[in-house]
Amino acid sequence: MEATELNNEYESRPNMSKSKWTEIWEKIVEIIFFLSACMAIVSIAIITFFIFIKGVPAIAEIGLFDFIFKTDWYPEAEILGIGAMIVASIYATLGSIIIGVPIGLLTAVFIAELAPDWMIKIIKPAVELLAGIPSVVYGFFGLVIIVPIIDRTFGGGGNGLLAAIIILSFMILPTIINISVTALKAVPREYKEGSLAMGASHIQTIFKVMIPAAKSGIFAAIILGIGRAIGETMAVILVAGNSIQIPFSILDRVRPMTAHIALEMSYAAPGLHENSLFATGVILFIFIMILNIVLNFITSKVGE
């Protein structure tokens, strides 16, 4: 506040010969800064516009209900239902959350509360590296390690829903851990001290006081994890088997929406087939936007 006042005082000094030009220049630069800041809005707007302009007419032609609930996919006959892909995306995401969230949250508890300094020095860079490993490397690792292990243990080839779930739960760990650690560390000290003073043990304090107090941050971590899992493409293609079917077993081959778009895009002929892939993008986009709005709601509530 003070800085702005000082600045205004300087700008209003009339006796400086260069001041008028400086003022105009400063204004121009401020406008450039403002326009740059608007690039994020512009980007979101044109991405939405172009995905929808290609996708929505296709949905209208196929029929919304048929498109998202029918599970038949015969592009040559223009029978285009992505029900199986939507189910596959939901199953793979849910599965990875079921495995990834407990492991991630408990690791976060370890980092925030239990680990001695020297261990933090090992585990934090490890989490950063996990976040940095390219998704295609995860996929390759899944293909050469996880898939054969599943094949040996349960049979059936190994590539399928379970392999996708395992790889995705590895991939969402860093997201869950980093945001949960921040949330746990933001819990006021008094909460913890109060609980300890009442005679609760450290572990009881963590689970009865600190995690409940950090719940909106942890919830945000889960939402971001869901976003990462539902949007992952290349890693999933390499391990999921990619058959178009509603899975009845965790070992069945599945094709989530993202994999579907990437796989079909390489050979889809222009026309309804190609446009239906953009329509799949629209559905995926809507999923993500709902997650963003939920996330925005949670984080703005925390700010209050």
Partner: peptide
């Protein structure tokens, strides 16, 4: 938060 495949489509 937008998945990279959606960026790709765009």
């Amino acid at each position: 938060g937008i998945p990279s495949i959606v960026f790709g489509l765009y």
